[in-house]
Design a protein around this nucleic acid. Structure first.
Length: 565
RNA sequence: CGGGGUAUAGCGCAGCCUGGUAGCGCAUCUGCUUUGGGAGCAGAGGGUCGUAGGUUCGAAUCCUGCUACCCCGACCA
């Protein structure tokens, strides 16, 4: 491709509403243009990147035996009513009405459609297992789109859905996808982790998220320093190996005026937050237990997903409001404690192994010190309800937990029979009896991968594309071609040679000064750069510089192909 | 949804307080010179100042409504 005919459109200045580096660089390099909130046009240069990402995904999905198809973006409401999601899905589902007043949504995902296909098309266990996928535009009306295509409303996703006769078959499909995903992200040259994720309300089902590691990531990824344990924050298991200390202090009531938070409590008593116990009141799961107390060590944070899964706790998790707190403990939030409570008390393991601790006295402006389990209050129910913190013990063995930031680019998940049951998708099994299909779903955010790759690979000059997803693999930069026929001829020849060798090469034939040309090519992140100039030609040489090399090197003209093939 | 902010040329901004008919940098176009790290000089084009109304002799500027966009928050015991 010749740059003069490719509409490269780079800018030196950064648009002021771009917060993170990938968004800034994508705009500056001319990969994308914003149309509206969370809506982006992919320019020719950006589309080349998307196509390369898609092709890698396609090749690996095909290799894993999945079949590509294409479903409609707009879906009838009836299907969603059948699955029960028309009512459950919140405002992020974009709903619309056609001229006949029939209701539709723009698909944020395609479980309903694919399950509908399956129930109509699949009749026998002999047709299984199957895995269908598509690469298609989705729409989710995000509360707050941000970070460019990282969290946009319209985005391109690869979604796949597997169908098996039983749980074992589902597990096989799931494992095959796990392998395929690793192959995909390996080929893209990304630093990523596959982590255990919360599997929602479906018990026993497996769920893995694939995160590209980057400091700007929106998710916390937890991994163990020894062994291969890795999980996201919702799922990461918090364990407590510390023994409970002996009770050494008597329980005392102290006045604590103007103390409402753990920080204030620790500061006023000059103790560590780890000595304080935090009591949270949440709504219970039924009318008989309207309120449940959740206990955490002062420095720990509640994990809402874990709490929500507890049978005693209402789902979705709802914090008790001021009125409910008043009627339960006769004091305000900030002075609540577990001593003398006659509601279910659920403590995190670390909270349950505290001794001589400090907590609210259930009277405003008072706290208790020297509190001890068994002696002063009954043993609590112990459950994992907190977020892990850096340095926690590895729940699966030796070592400790570390926390890094990640960008979720893929998710594989065992759906089981949730949708197949709701939509009655069955096939006949070996005994001629109807069997409900076991489904898995597997997503990759195609557009997000592009942003994540930049987030992970950039420097002050611009993007540093991994070779496999770079818009061009190499660029030929002639110096002062307008004046030198020799340079023009040599550059044309090099360009043709690279092209004929199968290299996706850009020929920067624009009449630019070298500085401007180099800056542009670095901004858009082309991995290999070859410079042709009169001086170099005199010695039959070419200058080569890899995008992440600190310096250029001079190579012989006939070493060019060997350099990159 | 709550709070804050912005809207002036393609992009980044000034002008607004104190009303008098719009300017700077980058980009664009023309010419000449220049050509190994975002060139110099000379010239040119481009804006219903988000939108609707109000005040005024006169509004980018003051007032009101609307719209769009951005940021922060939605863990508090």
């Amino acid at each position: 491709m010749r740059a003069s005919q490719f509409h490269l459109s780079t800018t030196r200045e950064t648009p002021n509403d771009a917060e993170i580096v990938s968004h800034q660089l994508m705009l500056r390099a001319g990969l994308i243009r914003r149309l509206g909130s969370g809506l982006y046009t992919w320019m020719p240069l950006g589309l080349k990147v998307l196509r390369k990402i898609e092709n890698i995904i396609r090749e690996e999905m095909d290799r894993a035996g999945a079949l590509e198809m294409l479903m409609p973006a707009v879906q009838p409401a009836e299907l969603w009513e059948e699955s029960g999601r028309w009512g459950k899905f919140g405002p992020e589902l974009l709903r619309l009405t056609d001229r006949h007043n029939r209701e539709y949504c723009v698909g944020p995902t395609h479980e309903e459609v694919i399950t509908d296909i399956a129930r109509r098309d699949l009749k026998s266990y002999k047709q299984l297992p199957l895995n269908f996928y598509q690469i298609q535009t989705k729409f989710r009306d995000e509360i707050r789109p941000r970070f460019g295509v990282m969290r946009s409303r319209e985005f391109i996703m690869k979604d796949a859905y597997s169908f098996g006769i039983d749980a074992a078959s589902l597990q096989e499909s799931f494992d095959a996808m796990h392998i395929a995903y690793c192959a995909i992200f390996d080929r893209m040259g990304l630093d990523y982790r596959a982590v255990e994720a919360d599997s929602g309300s479906i018990g026993g089902a497996q769920s893995r998220e694939f995160h590209v590691l980057a400091d700007s990531g929106e998710d916390a990824v937890v991994y163990a320093t020894e062994g291969d344990y890795a999980a996201n924050m919702e799922k990461a298991e918090a364990v407590c190996n510390d023994p409970r200390g002996e009770a050494s202090l008597p329980m005392q009531t102290i006045d604590t005026p103007n103390v409402h938070t753990i920080d204030e409590l620790a500061a006023s008593l000059k103790v560590d937050a780890t000595q304080c116990l935090k009591t949270l009141l949440v709504k219970g799961s039924d009318e008989k237990v309207p309120v449940v107390a959740l206990l955490l060590r002062g420095d720990h944070q509640l994990n809402e997903v874990k709490a929500e899964h507890l049978p005693e706790v209402a789902s979705p998790l709802t914090m008790a409001d001021a009125e409910l707190i008043r009627s339960t403990v006769q004091c305000d939030a900030g002075s609540i404690g577990p001593v003398g409570l006659n509601i279910p008390v659920i403590a995190d393991a670390n909270a349950a192994c505290m001794s001589d601790f400090i907590c609210g006295a259930n009277t405003n402006a008072q706290h208790l010190t020297g509190v001890n389990w068994t002696r002063d209050l009954p043993e609590p129910i112990v459950r994992d309800i907190r977020n892990v913190i850096e340095g926690d013990a590895n729940p699966k063995g030796n070592g400790i937990l570390k926390i890094v930031r990640g960008i979720e680019v893929g998710h594989i998940f065992q759906l089981g029979d949730t949708y197949s049951k709701a939509l009655d998708a069955t096939v006949l099994d070996e005994n001629g009896k109807p069997a409900t299909l076991m489904m898995g779903c597997y997503g990759i955010g195609v557009t997000r991968v592009a942003a994540a790759a930049i987030e992970q690979n950039n420097d002050s000059a611009g993007i540093i594309w991994p070779l496999s997803i770079a818009p061009f693999e190499a660029v030929v930069c002639p110096v002062n071609m307008v004046k030198s026929d020799a340079v023009k001829e040599a550059a044309e020849k090099l360009y043709t040679e690279l092209k004929d060798a199968g290299v996706d090469v850009l020929f920067d034939d624009r009449p630019l000064r070298p500085g401007a040309m180099f800056s542009d090519m670095e901004l858009i992140g082309i991995p290999h750069r070859f410079v042709v100039s009169d001086k170099l030609l005199a010695n039959n040489e070419i200058e080569y510089r890899g995008r992440s090399d600190s310096e250029a090197s001079i190579i012989a003209r006939d070493e060019v192909l060997a350099k990159i093939i």
